[in-house]
Design a protein around this nucleic acid. Structure first.
Lengths: 217, 217
DNA sequence: TAACAGAATTGGTCTGACCTAATACCAATA
DNA sequence: TATTGGTATTAGGTCAGACCAATTCTGTTA
C-alpha cells in the first residue's frame, strides 16, 4: 500500500485524476497484480481511491506517504442508536467548527456563506425546506473553518443520517424550527465573534436533537 | 465484504476471536480465495480485522451488516500541522464527552476513574509524569460517556500524537501544567455537573494547546 | 446527425502453485 | 524435570495466467 501511495504522491496526482490500468501499474511498481489489487482495495475502503469497473481507478482524496488514516466503525443496535451516537459527537465538532470559522473566515468565505444562506432561505419559503440546501449551507461554515477534518467528519455523519431517512416513515421538517438561528449564526461568524457563534450553534443543535429524539420509533 | 461480515455476525464472533484459515473460509462462503482476501484486506484497513501471518486472522472490533464505516484521512503539510488539525477537533469531542460522562456515569465508572486518577497522580509525583497513565485516565472518562465513538476517535488521535513525539526533540512535560484541573474535572463528573465538567475540560485543553503551539518547530 | 452493434478496455473473480513468517511439537541435553 | 533447539506444520502473502462482466469507445448505418 505504501508503495502505491508513494507512486501517487511522486506524480503529484490530484483528486479526480485517473490511475493507469492495473496491468500497467504492476509493471511500474514491480509487483504482481494480486499485491497491487490488495493496495487498491485497501485504499478504496479508506475512501482514497474509487475503482469503477470498465472505466478505471480514480483518486478521491489527496494522499502522501505521511497521510494518517482514522478508520472509525459505528456499530449500534439499530440505526436510531447510531444516529444518536453520532449526533452527540457532531455537537462538539460543530461548535468547535463555528468557533474556528469565526476566527479564520476570509472575505470569500463570508460571500459563499451568505449565498448559501439565501438559497437555503428561499428553499424554505418555496417548498418548506430542502435537505440539500441546508447541508450546503452548513458545509460553507465548515470550509470557512479551514480544517479539512471538519468537512470529512460531517460528510461521514451525513451518510448515516441519509441511511436513517431511508426508513419508511414521514420526515418531519425539523430544520424549520432551528431556522431563525441560522442568520444569527452567520452574523456571528461574519463579525468574528467566536463566543456568539458557539452559543448559536449550541442552540441550533439543541433544537435538532430534541426533534430527533421525539421522532424515535 | 458484506458476505464476510454477515458470516461473522451470524456466528456471533467477538473481538479477539480467531477466524478460520482463509482456505477453509472460501469453502464456507463459496467464493474464491481472491475475493475472500479482498474482503479481509478491506476490513483490515478499516481496523475490523487483523491478519497475523503464520497465526491467523483475528476480529478486532464488533461488526454487523448494519455497521457504518467512517474512514477519515488526515493529510497535512507536516506532522505539526496534522497535530493542530486533530487537536482542534479533539477540543470539541472531549468537551462533549465530559458532558456525556457527567450525565451517564455509573457507580462503577466513578470507581474506575478515581483509581486511574490516583495512578496518574502518583506517576507524576515519582517520575514527573507518564503519558500512559494520563491516557488511561482520560479513557476512563470517555468510557463513562458510554458512547464508543468517543473512545475510537480519541484512540485514533493518540496515534497521531504518538507519531509526533517520535520526532527527535525533547518532550516538555506539558501534562504537568494542566494537572491541577484534573481532580476538579473528576469531581464535576462524579457529581453529575455537566456544565462544570465542560468548563474544566475547556481549561485543560486550553493549556495543552497553548503548550503545543509554543513547542512547534 | 443520431442511434445502434460490436470491439476494445478495464476492473473483478477463480485456480493453483509457491514463498515466508509464526507456531507447535518433540527429541536431545543439562 | 526443565530447558533448549531443530524441524514439521500452519497460515497469511505473492505470483501468474485464464476468464468474466460492466463500461466505454468506435465505426457503421438509418
Amino acid at each position: 500500500m505504501d508503495a502505491l501511495v508513494t507512486w501517487i504522491d511522486e506524480r503529484g496526482l490530484k483528486p479526480g485524476d485517473r490511475l493507469p490500468p492495473e496491468r500497467d501499474l504492476t509493471a511500474a511498481l514491480k509487483v504482481g497484480r494480486s499485491s497491487l489489487r490488495e493496495a487498491v482495495s485497501q485504499l478504496s475502503a479508506l475512501g482514497v481511491l474509487e475503482a469503477r469497473i470498465g472505466s478505471g481507478t480514480y483518486l478521491k482524496r489527496r494522499v502522501t506517504p505521511g497521510t494518517h488514516y482514522m478508520p472509525l466503525t459505528v456499530t449500534a443496535d439499530g440505526l436510531a442508536e447510531a444516529l444518536l451516537m453520532t449526533l452527540e459527537v457532531r455537537r462538539g465538532i460543530e461548535i468547535e467548527a463555528s468557533i474556528a470559522a469565526a476566527r479564520r473566515r476570509t472575505a470569500d468565505d463570508i460571500v459563499r456563506m451568505e449565498v448559501a444562506l439565501n438559497e437555503m432561505e428561499s428553499a424554505h419559503k418555496t417548498e418548506g425546506g430542502s435537505g440539500k440546501a441546508d447541508f450546503a449551507y452548513h458545509m460553507t461554515i465548515y470550509d470557512a473553518a479551514h480544517n479539512p477534518l471538519f468537512r470529512q467528519l460531517l460528510e461521514q455523519m451525513r451518510d448515516i443520517v441519509e441511511r436513517f431517512w431511508e426508513q419508511p416513515f414521514d420526515r418531519p421538517d425539523f430544520a424549520a424550527r432551528s431556522f431563525p438561528f441560522h442568520r444569527t449564526l452567520f452574523n456571528a461568524i461574519r463579525d468574528g465573534d467566536a463566543e456568539a457563534a458557539a452559543a448559536e450553534t449550541r442552540k441550533i443543535l439543541d433544537v435538532v436533537e430534541e426533534d430527533i429524539r421525539n421522532m424515535r420509533p
